[in-house]
């Protein structure tokens, strides 16, 4: 990755993170931890990879993104707003009565949201359906999907994994956001879903493990996924929950809690 692209992505990721803090602070609730852990991944997809048009969000041959870990909606909304799908100031309406920015993504109400998600384990199946539709129609679009590591405890994730491999959905790339934490604690303490790489490989997937905060590694993995024929790709992205805000990093307590005024000011200053 050249320096110019890296600088652009670094700048955009900073704005995406600020949007996450801004929106959850305004809402007084929401999920900043898991939003910050996938901030770099969604920034890469929306600013460097996906064929999308903010003026035509339903463009037929657009690339699709399904946020299977729907509680990270603040990350999706922030990247969509920063990409021009809707006004940045609307991020402050997150979760409020009358807002089109629902607590979890709503494809009917929010421009750029490709699939309604939030109930864990379901989105990846929807992504499989979209990828299958692409194969059937002969469209060249690709489908990206973000699955949480805690979410991978849902059996349906593995039903979908079986399906995608069986139907050779090589137009599907799943990011497994391995931040290591879920609501009740460390994933390895709650109910250990690891090792994800061996599990996806056993299900017949092409598997790539990366640092989910390193843009060059994200780029290489996405390109490798595109080059891989006959298999879907799982990118196991090692991430830090709360990444970018020192007091949120690796803290279970920041899964589903909004920053207060003081914490907001500190977080925004750190992100500058």
């Amino acid at each position: 990755m050249n320096n110019e692209k890296l600088a652009m992505l670094t700048e955009k990721a900073k704005l995406v993170r600020k949007g996450i803090i801004e929106s959850t602070h305004a809402a007084g609730c929401g999920h900043p931890g898991g939003s910050l852990s996938i901030a770099d991944i969604v920034t890469y997809l929306y600013f460097a990879e996906m064929n999308i048009d903010e003026k035509n969000p339903k463009m037929e041959n657009r690339d699709r993104f399904v946020l299977s870990k729907g509680h990270a909606a603040p990350a999706l909304y922030s990247v969509l707003a920063n990409r021009g799908f809707f006004p940045l100031e609307d991020l402050k309406t997150l979760r409020k009565t009358g807002s089109y920015l629902q607590g979890h993504p709503d494809m009917k109400g929010t421009p750029g949201v490709d699939m309604s998600t939030g109930s864990l384990g379901l989105g990846i199946s929807g992504a499989c359906g979209m990828a299958l539709a692409g194969k059937l129609s002969g469209n060249s679009y690709r489908v990206y999907c973000a699955v949480g590591d805690g979410e991978s405890e849902e059996g349906q994730v593995w039903e979908a994994a079986m399906f995608a491999a069986h139907y050779k959905l090589d137009n599907l790339t799943v990011f497994l956001d391995l931040n290591g934490l879920q609501i009740d604690g460390k994933i390895t303490d709650v109910i250990n879903p690891t090792p994800h790489d061996e599990k996806f490989a056993a299900f017949g997937w092409n598997v790539i493990t990366i640092d989910g905060h390193n843009f060059a590694e994200i780029e290489d993995a996405v390109n490798a996924a595109k080059a891989c024929k006959g298999k879907p790709t799982a990118i196991i992205a090692k991430t830090t929950k709360g990444k970018g805000v020192s007091f949120m990093e690796n803290q279970v307590g920041w899964h589903g809690k909004a920053p207060n005024d003081e914490q907001y000011a500190t977080a925004m200053a750190e992100l500058d």
Binding site: E60, G121, L122, S125, G129, A133, E159
Partner: peptide, 14 residues
């Protein structure tokens, strides 16, 4: 469960 999600994705794609 997966079948219903796949159906949703197909419907969302026409």
């Amino acid at each position: 469960g997966n079948m219903m999600g796949v159906a949703a994705g197909l419907a969302a794609s026409g």
